[in-house]
């Protein structure tokens, strides 16, 4: 008790302003995402999740910055490793646990799983697996908003350096610039596309150089540094909102997990793991918090506890819910029911 009081007293004297006004808020989303995904991994290991589990460990700082600056009316196209961004954008934890655990009440109702989820009507697009495909979809959503006379909206789409090599991605970037939509594309180079390292993915000097070729403005980013992520992605969002050309941000990190939880990533050599881009963004952010004494130790501990409690509750709820059932399913892939073909 005395110790705690002493620490509080001490921290009061040394407290400084955070390096970004939304640093702590962002950190909290990162913590939630990490806590959630660790839990999902243990459920997967325990055989309680059907299908794959794909986590964003090491990419939370970039991802959270993607979701954090979006406002009502903005369009978000998250991808595989964007739990932090999705949460910051407003996706309820229940969406995640219901989708992973196959609850009939989830947004995908057992029809699709894991990261392939979204709420198109709430402007959170539901990614398809095929990488690169969601860029142009985001462009179209922004064009529609312009057609309708909406004001003050932007779109933000995520991609990996692997997905950047698809034709679909190139077409999407080009058409975004042609249509001059207020779009931010955040590319996270985590140095591997599944098991393939950068040198077999692309041969240009720096991916950000492509921005000029597409007609985008481009920025590089150390994705392990939350402050930098908030600064660079936050500024890109501002610029897009202000009517500047589409923005490309290329962040550098290391994927701190397998491609999915089935993958031990044994192909990542130790020397890569010692590179600066291999730092764990959550640990780096936490160190900043401690070094600058932004939070007391007990607050930090409480935040962890809160995150764990929220995650546990979301999992427990989803686990209690009924799964879909084949003989009760509505096997109709179109909404115009009288135009459904009959195969009876």
């Amino acid at each position: 008790m005395l110790q705690t009081a002493q620490r509080t007293a001490k921290s009061k004297t040394k407290k400084t302003a955070p390096p970004h006004e939304r640093f702590l808020e962002a950190f909290r989303w990162m913590l939630l995402a990490r806590t959630l995904e660790e839990k999902l991994v243990s459920l997967y290991r325990g055989g309680l999740i059907t299908g794959g589990v794909y986590i964003g460990k090491g990419q939370e700082a970039v991802s959270v910055a993607c979701g954090l600056f979006l406002q009502k009316g903005d369009i978000f196209a998250p991808l595989i490793r964007d739990q932090a961004g999705r949460s910051a954008f407003g996706e309820p934890l229940l969406d995640v646990t219901r989708t992973y655990l196959g609850s009939r009440q989830g947004p995908m109702r057992g029809r699709d799983g894991n990261i392939h989820r979204g709420h198109p009507r709430k402007n959170e697009l539901a990614m398809i697996s095929h990488l690169g495909a969601m860029i142009s979809v985001t462009v179209g959503a922004l064009m529609a908003k312009r057609f309708k006379g909406d004001k003050d909206f932007i779109g933000l789409a995520c991609i990996g350096e692997g997905g950047m090599q698809t034709g679909s991605f190139h077409e999407g970037m080009n058409i975004a610039a042609v249509e001059q939509v207020p779009l931010v594309v955040v590319a996270t180079n985590n140095h591997y596309a599944y098991s393939t390292p950068n040198d077999r993915e692309f041969a240009c000097h720096d991916l950000v150089d492509r921005a000029i070729g597409y007609g985008f403005e481009g920025y590089s980013l150390d994705g392990t540094d939350l402050t930098a992520c908030l600064d660079v992605i936050g500024s890109a969002v501002k610029r897009a909102r202000a009517g500047r050309p589409p923005q490309l941000v290329v962040a550098s990190v290391l994927r701190l997990s397998g491609h999915g939880e089935h993958d031990d990533a044994s192909y990542v050599p130790d020397e890569v793991k010692r590179q600066p881009f291999a730092r764990d963004c959550l640990k780096v952010a936490e160190k900043t918090i401690v070094d600058l004494n932004l939070l007391g130790a007990e607050t930090l501990a409480q935040w962890r506890k809160d995150a764990a409690a929220q995650v546990d509750e979301a999992i427990a709820t989803a686990q209690k819910e009924a799964p879909p059932e084949g003989d009760k399913e509505d096997w109709c892939a179109i909404s115009t029911r009288d135009l459904a073909d009959s195969f009876e």
Binding site: P120, I135, S136, V137, G140
Partner: peptide, 16 residues
């Protein structure tokens, strides 16, 4: 850009 043309239409249609 046939892929992007359809993708764009999809996004626009989702938005009404």
């Amino acid at each position: 850009s046939e892929d992007a043309i359809v993708g764009t239409a999809i996004g626009a249609a989702i938005q009404g």
